[in-house]
Design a protein around this nucleic acid. Structure first.
Lengths: 194, 194, 194, 194
DNA sequence: GATGAATGAGTTTTCATTCAT
DNA sequence: CATGAATGAAAACTCATTCAT
């Protein structure tokens, strides 16, 4: 990634966080980045491509953090770190949190599909952890993997969204253990079907 | 609700389901409803008000179903029915599912806030069930109630969204028990903090 | 043709004649017509459609004049009137002449093709006159009809273009007989191949 | 003409022929010529100057052919060769024909005026031939010289344009005699005014 | 109540040209 | 001489909303 492309992505995050998806005109992003409008188009195909590039870059950072922090820990510990990384990813960057949880979701259906594709590595990694946890006897070997992934992602996503909508009024990281406790219970072994 | 207001809401659901949020121009909804463009504004303040009216009406139907089906059952059974109602609400009405999970979420932040407010009765009812379940000793009395609600809503929401994005390729209702199993484990009593 | 559509076409002729093809912004045409920008799009699909509609309307007027003036005259007289109508069509309307001969020809290839199609009735009528003239023994029965039509159109077109480029400095109608004399000789009977 | 200037002109012909006037961006021409965008501006004042240079070069080639082929023949023969040279100029180079008849005519009025000036030697030479022909008693001494030139140019131009628009579907050179027959009749002596 | 013609604000994107290297 | 990254002006079109009838 060139330095200027990076510059524009950062500007986009700031502008979107401040003015919202619909107030994020290309010219505003350019001004924030300190480049001419046309320069944007040397680094991005079009406006949607800026948003795509932004999300791609940030998801990539998250996945790199995942790689660096998961190591060879037990699946149970990996899952906790995985979820914590997801929460920290946005909890430590409020403008990004606003972009990802609220603003980017206002994009067109077509765009949203493309953004979802970027989460494939996320789901793949999560799946691997769950599978290893099942094999290790830590996680519930009767549960449906797809729903387990959706529950984990959905719970975290909803928790973060609520926090963003509340205008960051509370410290979501301080409550992380309470959130993870519920997720953990859902996937841990030792439950019977009812 | 006047007859014509109802007519317009139904037209809006059909148009949004067919053409998507961005293809749902007021004139198209008017045409579908068989009224003049201007007539819309005799029944709704503006375009957002149509979407708001639509969601309000549909959520209202869901909440009425909740009331009718929850009865005096045990909290555990109520929770299962609650979640099932949520899934069935959209699983049995694919156009509505597309509207609610994908299209309506493209509306402006301001609008999304108003739509979220309509879910307050949903969260209040869910909260009541959880509290009763805790008091009855069925649900985990150590869990954070807010996160529990968010986990339940988030898991179901994510599951339905994935199903809609897949273009309804599988039978989500047939898998309901597998989904509920995970949710149930999360909130049930008998887990220890780690 | 609605009254307002007519209004817009007239405004377009004036604006194009005064500011040229590239200076004829939609907003300028709208202002000249005394309507809002958006109103243009109630009567025309897009900007090219204005130009197309303008040429279509004006060619239609020419062809109506042709019908009304050709009557049952001899082919020789009909040809002279035909050519004179073509010249008068533009000689008596300098703004239209500027549009047709200079400005409209700057449109994109695709558009030019569509404009050319509008001249099919012109060429068909000219062809009919030539055929009747040949059958009557007035016109050269050895000539190639396609080239004859092209020569007639090309000569008149070039003559008018030169006049427009000269900024209407001379009276092209006063010289009509001299122009027609040459055209007439080209198609008249009595010439031998060399 | 420097070697690089020639290189750019050739590139321009190829690019315009392939992509049309509006697809012939300076950067595309530069790429085709194998030079940097900025280099173009070391050899040409601006984009129009490239087109001007291209047409100037090609018209110059035509006029050189004229000089070499007209010799001391009779005016009648010279006229036929003159017209044939004009047709062959484009008939034997379809990309150039497309440029000259269709693409270059989409340029701005101002530019078109400059291009027309390049045809002055063409008209001067044609005029000379006609004058000599009249003096020699071969051509009609009653005809208007300006219109005669316009008829000849207009007829040939229209014939070639039609051929180009037809996508070169027929062999225009094979029909040259039929075209010239009509032109010849127009200017030859022996016709009476009617 | 109902109509629907008219309004007009608002934004992405291209590309000829420049100039620091 | 040559480069090519950066510039920034300029315009078509949509569509929610109004209001005279």
């Amino acid at each position: 990634m060139t330095e200027k492309r990076q510059l524009i992505i950062n500007a986009a995050v700031e502008v979107i966080a401040e003015h919202g998806y619909h107030g994020a005109q290309v010219s505003r992003i350019a001004k924030q980045a300190g480049v001419a409008d046309g320069t944007i188009y040397l680094y991005f195909k079009n406006k949607d491509d800026i948003l795509f590039g932004l999300f791609e870059y940030k998801v990539d950072q998250l996945m790199k953090t995942m790689e660096q922090t998961l190591g060879n820990l037990s699946p149970e510990k990996q899952l906790k770190i995985f979820v914590r990384n997801h929460v920290e990813w946005l909890a430590l960057d409020q403008p990004l949190a606003a972009c990802v949880q609220l603003e980017l979701r206002q994009s067109k259906k077509e765009m949203r599909n493309k953004l979802n594709h970027l989460l494939i590595p996320y789901h793949r990694l999560l799946n691997d952890i769950l599978v290893k946890g099942i094999e290790a006897g830590d996680f519930d070997n009767t549960m449906n993997l797809k729903f387990a992934r959706q529950l984990i992602f959905g719970a975290v996503d909803e928790a973060i969204s609520t926090w963003v909508v509340s205008d960051f009024k509370y410290d979501i990281l301080a409550q992380f253990d309470e959130l993870y406790y519920l997720i953990s219970k859902a996937v841990r072994r030792g439950q019977l079907h009812d």
